[in-house]
Each structure stands twice: as structure tokens, then as C-alpha cells.
Simulated assay, not measured.
Amino acid sequence: MTTGDGRTARWALLLDKPPGEGPLRRQYELMATVDGTHEEAVARFGEFVRLYRPKHPLYPVRIRRYRTGDGWMLIGDGSAGGVFTYHFMLTELEWDSGQITY
């Protein structure tokens, strides 16, 4: 991890989608990337997560946002009683076999 040393890296924000939004296996979606320090990535992605509006629950009664060791978690309670969990993971690109194209 590059905390505190000021080194620039490529960071990605991955979303671990909740069950019901695709196949039953875990499904990750690349939400955003940023080049910068760890602190810059946390600030940029923190704002992204703050503004994110999940598809489920369709009629939210309550949404809570938590900071985790590797990102954020949104938990939404729906009006029909369902609970949906979205885990956003902050990841650092450590190795790439080809030219970065995004």
C-alpha cells in the first residue's frame, strides 16, 4: 500500500454487486480509476460513493454508508423490507500485462 509516501499510482474503485443484480456468483464492476496518491484516491472515490445512487432498493427507506478497511459499504433498506449491500473496494494497480487503455 502506498499510504503516506506520496507516491503516484493508478487506483481503481471496484463495486461488488449485491445478489439479485446478476448471476449468483460474485460480480465486480470497475466504477472509476484515478492516478495519484492514496490520499487523493480516497478523496475522489469517497465523493463518488457519496453521490452514488444504487438501483436497489427501488424505494429506499434508509441508506447507510460505512468506511471500511478497503473502501466503503452502502446498505439500503427497501420499503418492501429487503436489504441491499454494495461494497466499494479501493484497489491499487500493481501489475498490468499491456498498455493501459482507460
Rank of each mutant, 00 (worst) to 15 (best):
E39A: 15
V49A: 04
R50P: 02
F48W: 14
L51M: 11
G69P: 06
G69E: 12
R62V: 11
T68I: 03
P57M: 03
K55M: 10
T68S: 05
G36A: 09
R65C: 05
R62Y: 05
V49N: 04
V61T: 14
G46R: 02
E39D: 13
G46I: 09
R67N: 06
L51D: 15
Y59C: 06
R65N: 07
T37V: 08
Y59V: 13
S79F: 07
P57N: 04
E47V: 11
A43W: 00
G46F: 00
F48D: 11
F45H: 06
P54S: 02
F48E: 08
I63Y: 00
R65M: 10
R53Y: 05
A43E: 13
Y52N: 04
S79Y: 03
R65W: 00
D77I: 09
T37H: 05
R65P: 02
K55N: 09
G36N: 07
L74D: 03
A41Y: 01
D77F: 07
F48N: 07
A41V: 05
R62D: 12
G71P: 06
S79I: 10
A41Q: 08
L74Q: 12
I63D: 04
A41H: 02
G78H: 04
H56M: 10
S79E: 14
L51S: 13
H56P: 01
W72I: 05
D77E: 15
V61P: 00
K55G: 11
P54A: 01
R67E: 15
G36R: 08
G71Y: 01
G76I: 02
R53Q: 12
I75Y: 00
F45S: 07
R44F: 08
G36I: 10
R53S: 13
P57T: 02
G71I: 08
L58T: 14
I63E: 12
T37L: 08
R62T: 10
S79D: 15
G36H: 06
R62M: 13
I75H: 04
E40I: 03
Y59P: 04
P54E: 00
E40W: 02
F45T: 11
G71A: 06
G69S: 13
D70E: 14
E47H: 05
G69D: 14
E39H: 06
V49W: 00
Y52W: 11
R62Q: 15
Y66S: 11
G71R: 01
W72F: 01
R50L: 10
M73K: 14
G46V: 08
T68F: 00
Y66A: 09
V61M: 11
L58G: 12
P60F: 00
F48I: 13
M73R: 15
R64C: 04
I75Q: 14
A43Y: 01
L51N: 14
G71M: 04
S79G: 07
L51T: 15
T68G: 01
P57K: 03
R53K: 13
W72T: 08
I63T: 15
T68M: 07
F45L: 07
G71N: 03
Y66D: 12
G71H: 01
F48A: 09
A41R: 05
R65E: 09
Y66W: 08
T68Q: 06
R64A: 12
H56C: 05
R50T: 14
V49Q: 04
R44S: 09
G78W: 02
G36T: 08
P57H: 02
H56S: 10
M73V: 13
E47G: 08
T68L: 09
V49T: 10
G69Y: 01
Y66F: 12
R65Y: 00
I75S: 07
L74C: 03
G36F: 03
P60T: 08
